[in-house]
Amino acid sequence: MVNADNNLYNEFLEIVEDLIYTPEFRKLDECSHHYGVSRMQHCINVAYYSFVVCKKLKLDYVAAARAGLLHDLFYYDWQGSGLGVAKHAFLHSSIALENAEQLTELSPLERDIIKNHMWLCGKMWPRHRESYIVSVADKVCAVWEAGYGVKRKVACVMAE
């Protein structure tokens, strides 16, 4: 997971610090997301790895970091929402975009990243390379977080 020991973390933090300390973003720490990882931690993971990849590829790493941080800015428990996985996957990016627009001014690129990070489930395809990078980072982080959660649960069972 992302923490202060990672290379480039201070530069990343400078880019997102006006967002990361807001009550709206911090509230995501109360939302479970992937197997015991909070939605806040998931968003930080996605934003950081998107930032690193975009920086290496000389793309807009600032937009990738900021939009990556806000890509799942919604507060409902999607597993208990009654929406089902498919409907949630289709709808939550629009909800996150609305919430992000209330929190900060977004560039067209940042809007595209947030709105289309679930492009495989929707009608719209991303228009920018940064959008695809954030989308892939989202999926990679979700898989890693699921493995992390399973590992923690197994460790707890083994300790009993």
Rank of each mutant, 00 (worst) to 15 (best):
M1T: 14
V2W: 07
N3H: 09
D5P: 01
Y9S: 07
Y9A: 08
N10Y: 12
E14N: 10
D18L: 07
D18R: 10
T22V: 04
E24W: 02
R26C: 11
R26N: 08
L28K: 07
L28V: 01
D29N: 11
D29S: 10
S32E: 14
H33D: 14
G36M: 09
V37N: 09
V37C: 05
S38D: 01
S38I: 05
R39P: 00
R39C: 09
M40H: 04
Q41C: 02
H42Y: 06
V46W: 01
A47V: 00
S50D: 08
S50H: 04
S50T: 01
V52N: 01
V52S: 01
V52E: 02
V53W: 08
V53T: 11
C54F: 05
K55L: 04
L59T: 08
D60R: 03
Y61N: 02
V62H: 09
A63L: 06
A64M: 03
A65M: 02
A67Q: 06
G68H: 09
G68P: 00
L70I: 00
L73Y: 06
L73H: 03
Y75R: 14
Y76T: 06
D77H: 04
S81V: 02
G82S: 07
V85A: 08
A86C: 02
K87A: 13
H88W: 09
H88P: 12
A89E: 08
A89Y: 07
A89T: 12
F90D: 07
H92A: 04
H92M: 03
S94Q: 11
I95N: 00
A96Y: 00
A96G: 03
N99Q: 13
E101P: 00
Q102R: 15
L103S: 14
T104G: 00
T104V: 14
S107V: 13
P108A: 05
L109D: 04
E110I: 13
D112I: 06
I113A: 07
I114A: 03
W119H: 15
W119A: 07
L120A: 07
C121G: 06
G122Q: 13
K123G: 04
M124C: 11
R129Q: 09
Y132E: 02
I133G: 01
I133E: 07
V134P: 01
S135N: 05
S135E: 10
A137C: 15
A137Q: 10
D138E: 12
D138A: 08
K139H: 11
V140W: 05
A142Y: 05
V143C: 04
V143S: 08
E145Y: 03
Y148E: 09
Y148V: 11
Y148A: 11
G149A: 10
G149T: 12
K151R: 15
K151L: 12
V154M: 11
V154G: 03
A155F: 09
C156M: 15
M158W: 12
M158A: 15
E160Q: 11
